[in-house]
């Protein structure tokens, strides 16, 4: 889908979360320790802009659209 390696890793984690409210920002940070907070936020913004993911109960929880 034209993702960078970081974007793909963020997307894959979001997609794999079974929770109704989606994955939390804290969980993403804990699972992607080699990425900076800035990098994760940048990946999230790209995925939101492209309609791949969306925020759920607040701006810190995410699910994927497909």
């Amino acid at each position: 889908m034209g993702f960078t390696a970081s974007q793909r890793q963020v997307f894959t984690l979001i997609k794999s979360c079974p929770l109704a409210e989606g994955i939390s920002m804290q969980c993403l940070r804990n699972s992607l320790k080699y990425l900076s907070f800035y990098d994760i936020r940048t990946c999230l913004q790209f995925l939101i802009n492209e309609g791949h993911i969306y925020s759920t109960i607040d701006d810190c929880h995410f699910k994927c659209t497909n």
Partner: peptide
């Protein structure tokens, strides 16, 4: 975890908005 009806409504609303955005991006190529 169980979500309230309001939370479920908000999530579905955001999901529909994201789907529309995805369709828009695909249409743009």
């Amino acid at each position: 975890s169980s979500l309230t009806a309001e939370q479920q409504r908000k999530i579905e609303e955001n999901r529909q908005r994201a789907l529309a955005r995805r369709a828009e991006r695909l249409a743009q190529g």
